[in-house]
Amino acid sequence: MAGKKTRRAVAEGGLTITSLMDAMTIILCFLLKSYEASDVTVTPSDDLKIPSSSALAPIKSTVQLIVSQSRILVDGEHVVNLQEYVDDEGRTTFEVPEDEKKGQLISELFNNLDRKAQDLKQIHDSTGLTEAEFKGQILLQCDRNLPFSLIREVMYTAGQAQFGEFKFVVVSTSGG
């Protein structure tokens, strides 16, 4: 009699994973919905806070120019360091060091972007693909606290290197 009771207790003690399975299925559905297969990576950090906007236009892969509070990068490659200073009004702001510039042109950035433009044109010439056509598009990821004077210098330099179509990356508040 005692032996029978023990056997029954063991049989009923199996792990019930049905509820766990339910939770996993819900998580899986949620993650599949928020899955984004994009080759454009936006990595906000302490010195790169992307501003918010109600814009809806999706991001398309092209040359990426990142301007954070400390440096400028092109396609993840470090180009120039920025320096912090306090302006006449007492505001903390950022600028490209004078020895890195010729007027408004940021020399090292121009060389880098010019090389990119030549490479992209060469790819189009050798492949002949219409998708690879050089359109002068550039993705700009800029920190929200940067002064417009710095953005203007970056835009001017990009424009001189034949990148005249700017795409400012923003955090979409429209939920698109």
Partner: peptide, 18 residues
């Protein structure tokens, strides 16, 4: 795998020219 590829913040672009 999906956690790594998921985007919880959606990004967009604003077009502009010189």
């Amino acid at each position: 795998f999906l956690l790594m590829a998921a985007q919880f913040v959606s990004y967009a672009v604003i077009d502009s020219t010189l």
